[in-house]
Every structure is written in structure tokens, then in C-alpha cells.
């Protein structure tokens, strides 16, 4: 056994050494790298683990069971019941609103964005440069800079406190236009276009029968990016919506945090007090769908969002 271990370990060690040298890493460098990466892994991993486990624990267990530990499955149901008890199950309308606002924004933005990207990439027409420049500018200026001016503008036309105040501004998706433009400019076979034109295809048919079917991966990326941005949107709905039945999940969660004794001990006298595990459950409901897409489509998302930039 001893010799077998010796041989096994020896050859493993040699292989590692070879691998290290091939990357120019010394033994010390390898250790430092390992330790640093581990520290970062703890920084990013522990809060995630805590968030996943927190809904399984009651208030007492959260404080006394150890921060990374499992309570019970039953506690998740209790947390959900607590949430339903808040403001006549407001949580249900927040979830429905979140889905409704987000899906509407995704569908509208994708429908609007793809044809623009297509014509920008395939045609030269007066005003094309201006549209592209304005697209770049509006995609770089952070959306939050415009939230208050948007409120003033929309209150002028009485749209404040309606779903449109949240959906329409987010259907404006300049980064999506840019991605669609780059996609068509780099991956549309020119021969195909000219052949179709010779065959008497008009512009609409060209787009509908050739360009659109090509764009399936693009549509997926656009839908995901738009979904992610709108699903987590806080500032805009916070400013635009007044009635709490119209909130989306992020604004609802912030409301819960503000009015429940979970964070304010002096409010603990309420009949069925909201506790930290309940809040964590809302957070988990919000982030789990996005996290799953992140894990399974990481490569796709990253290469897509990078597609815009020029490589040297």
C-alpha cells in the first residue's frame, strides 16, 4: 500500500510540476494563486449559500444554528404562508406584475430591435449614421440618469402609475439594436441576399424569410439580456408606481424590508411578523430563475455581450 501510494503520489506530483512549469508558475506562485482564488470563492459563494439556506430556518435557528446550516423543509412553507399574509397576498400580484412587465418589455423590445439592426447592417440610407451614433450614446448613458426626467415627462401625459410607465421606457433597448446590427453585419451571407433579390424578393420578404430565421441565437441573447435588466429593475418602477398592488418583485421586496419587523425590532408586535427567512425566500424567488440561466448559458451570454466590441 505504502509503495503504491508513493508511486501514485509521485507521478501525480510530477504531472502537476510539469503543468505548473508549462504555465510559468513556481510552487509558491501556485500556492498564492490557490489561496487568493479560494478567498474570492468564499466571498462570492458564502452569501449565495446563506441565501439558499436561510428560508429553511426560523428566526431562532438563523441566529443559533450556525450561518451555513439547514433548518427544515417545512419552514419554507411557513415562510410562504407568512408572505401570503402580507397585505392580502400582495406577493402574488408582485410576482404576476414582474412577469407581466418583464415579458411585455422583452417581446416589445425584441420585435422592435431586430428589424432596425437588420436595416442598419444591410442598407445605406440618409440618417443611418445618426441613428447608429444616437444608439451608441443612449446605450452608454446609464438608464437611471433618465428616470426622474422620464417621470416628469410621463406625468405630463398622465401615464404615471400605469403599467405603461414601466413597460414602454424599457422597450427602448439601444444595446439590443447594436447587437442586432453587429450580428447581421457579420453573419449575413451576402450571396444569399443578392440571389434572393435577383429572384424578385422584396425587402419585407428578404427580412422575413432569410434574415429572421438566421437570427434565432440573436433572439435568445436579446431576450435574455432584456429579461435580466427588466426582471431586476428597481429605480424606474419605484419612481413610476404608487399603488403597492402594481409593484414588481424588486420594489415589493424593498417595501417588505421597510415595513417588517425582520429588520426593525420595534415592529415585532405584529400578529404574524415577517422574519428574515421570509425576505430571503422572496430574494431567492427573484434570483433563482436568472441564476439557472447564468449557469447553463454562461458562455453564450458572455460571447454575445462581447460581440459588440471590436477585437484588436
Amino acid at each position: 500500500m505504502r509503495t503504491m501510494f508513493g508511486i501514485g503520489f509521485g507521478s501525480w506530483w510530477k504531472e502537476q510540476q510539469l503543468h505548473r512549469r508549462r504555465n510559468g508558475l513556481s510552487l509558491g506562485g501556485t500556492i498564492i494563486r490557490f489561496v487568493l482564488l479560494l478567498i474570492f470563492a468564499l466571498f462570492f459563494g458564502l452569501p449565495l449559500l446563506w441565501l439558499v439556506l436561510a428560508p429553511t430556518k426560523n428566526e431562532n435557528q438563523l441566529y443559533n444554528l450556525g450561518s451555513i446550516s439547514f433548518g427544515s423543509w417545512g419552514r419554507i412553507g411557513e415562510a410562504w404562508d407568512h408572505l401570503l399574509g402580507f397585505n392580502n397576498a400582495a406577493i402574488l400580484s408582485w410576482i404576476t406584475n414582474s412577469i407581466f412587465y418583464t415579458i411585455s418589455a422583452v417581446i416589445l423590445s425584441v420585435i422592435i430591435v431586430v428589424p432596425v439592426g437588420y436595416v442598419l447592417a444591410t442598407m445605406r440610407f440618409p440618417g443611418r449614421g445618426l441613428i447608429l451614433t444616437l444608439t451608441l450614446i443612449t446605450m452608454i448613458v446609464p438608464g437611471s440618469a433618465l428616470v426622474l426626467p422620464l417621470f416628469m415627462e410621463l406625468s405630463l401625459v398622465n401615464l404615471v402609475d400605469t403599467p405603461w410607465a414601466v413597460i414602454l421606457p424599457t422597450a427602448f433597448f439601444p444595446f439590443g439594436v447594436y447587437l442586432a446590427f453587429i450580428f447581421y453585419a457579420t453573419s449575413l451571407p451576402t450571396d444569399l441576399l443578392s440571389a434572393a433579390k435577383v429572384d424578385g424578393c422584396n425587402e419585407w420578404k428578404l427580412f422575413q424569410q432569410i434574415a429572421l430565421p438566421l437570427a434565432v441565437p440573436l433572439l435568445g441573447l436579446l431576450a435574455f439580456l432584456s429579461f435580466n435588466a427588466n426582471w431586476n429593475n428597481f429605480f424606474l418602477p419605484f419612481v413610476m408606481l404608487n399603488q403597492d398592488t402594481m409593484y414588481n418583485l424588486p420594489v415589493g421586496l424593498a417595501t417588505l424590508a421597510g415595513v417588517t419587523p425582520a429588520l426593525h425590532p420595534e415592529l415585532a408586535q405584529t400578529a404574524s411578523p415577517m422574519v428574515k427567512g421570509d425576505l430571503a425566500l422572496v430574494g431567492l424567488i427573484m434570483s433563482l430563475p436568472v441564476a439557472l440561466v447564468f449557469i447553463f448559458a454562461q458562455r453564450f451570454i458572455v460571447s454575445g455581450s462581447l460581440a459588440g466590441s471590436i477585437k484588436e
Binding site: 474570492f40 470563492a41 462570492f44 459563494g45 424588486p250 424593498a254
Partner: peptide
Amino acid sequence: LYFVPGAVAGPT
């Protein structure tokens, strides 16, 4: 692992 916290955004 470093990428996933991006899903935990905003108020969460």
C-alpha cells in the same frame, strides 16, 4: 461561481 452572483441583483 464568480459569475452567478450577478443574478442576485438590485434589492436582493
